[in-house]
Simulated assay, not measured.
Amino acid sequence: MGNDQEQLLANRYRLSRVLGQGGMGAVWQAHDEHLGRDVAVKELRLPEHLGESERQNWIARFDREARAAARLKHPGIITVHDRISVPDGRPWIVMELVHGGSLADLVEAHGPLPPPSGLPSRGGGCALRSTPRTATASPTGTSSPPTSSSKRTASS
């Protein structure tokens, strides 16, 4: 979509800026004009060379991602609010917006991270234990630095 900035999706979500991009699309910051809150909106960008069958496969994969993410409930997981389609048929996922840096930002600033405690070392047989949240998933699919606060606290 050429110039998406300021575009209104589903008569509700106004795009403002790109937060990140990946192999299948981009994540935008948007404003939900019905509820008066900022959200993250994930856009599926389909390569132009795809045939109709491949296009439908990509859309089905994106829909599975939206449904799977929407079923998850945990303080360290971003909440999925909605799944919409634009006139050309492409789906978008509307999610909670969480401010913070990416895992790449953290590694660049502090170097490689040590392995989390409680994990088996070199083939040990212990099972993984449930640990307190150590990172927050961001809308771009990366992780942000550990925080002692809840995921809903913005850390610019």
Results as ranks from 00 to 15, higher is better:
residue 66 A to E: 03
residue 75 P to C: 02
residue 26 A to C: 06
residue 26 A to I: 05
residue 42 K to C: 01
residue 39 V to A: 01
residue 50 L to E: 03
residue 33 E to N: 08
residue 35 L to M: 13
residue 35 L to W: 12
residue 55 R to S: 13
residue 27 V to R: 03
residue 26 A to Y: 03
residue 74 H to I: 04
residue 28 W to P: 10
residue 79 T to D: 09
residue 31 H to D: 08
residue 58 W to P: 08
residue 62 F to Q: 04
residue 75 P to T: 08
residue 35 L to Q: 08
residue 43 E to F: 07
residue 76 G to L: 05
residue 40 A to G: 00
residue 75 P to E: 15
residue 57 N to A: 11
residue 26 A to F: 02
residue 51 G to V: 05
residue 46 L to P: 14
residue 82 D to R: 07
residue 59 I to F: 06
residue 49 H to V: 14
residue 31 H to C: 08
residue 31 H to M: 11
residue 31 H to L: 14
residue 56 Q to A: 13
residue 78 I to C: 01
residue 32 D to Y: 06
residue 27 V to K: 00
residue 49 H to I: 12
residue 79 T to L: 10
residue 53 S to Y: 10
residue 52 E to Y: 09
residue 73 K to V: 14
residue 80 V to T: 10
residue 60 A to M: 11
residue 63 D to F: 02
residue 45 R to Y: 05
residue 55 R to I: 08
residue 79 T to K: 11
residue 64 R to H: 14
residue 63 D to C: 01
residue 52 E to Q: 12
residue 41 V to P: 01
residue 68 A to E: 08
residue 60 A to W: 01
residue 80 V to A: 00
residue 62 F to A: 04
residue 78 I to D: 00
residue 77 I to Q: 05
residue 37 R to A: 04
residue 61 R to H: 12
residue 47 P to N: 07
residue 49 H to R: 13
residue 31 H to F: 12
residue 59 I to Q: 03
residue 26 A to T: 09
residue 77 I to T: 12
residue 46 L to D: 06
residue 63 D to M: 11
residue 82 D to I: 06
residue 28 W to A: 05
residue 42 K to N: 03
residue 49 H to W: 14
residue 57 N to S: 10
residue 45 R to H: 10
residue 63 D to T: 15
residue 72 L to K: 00
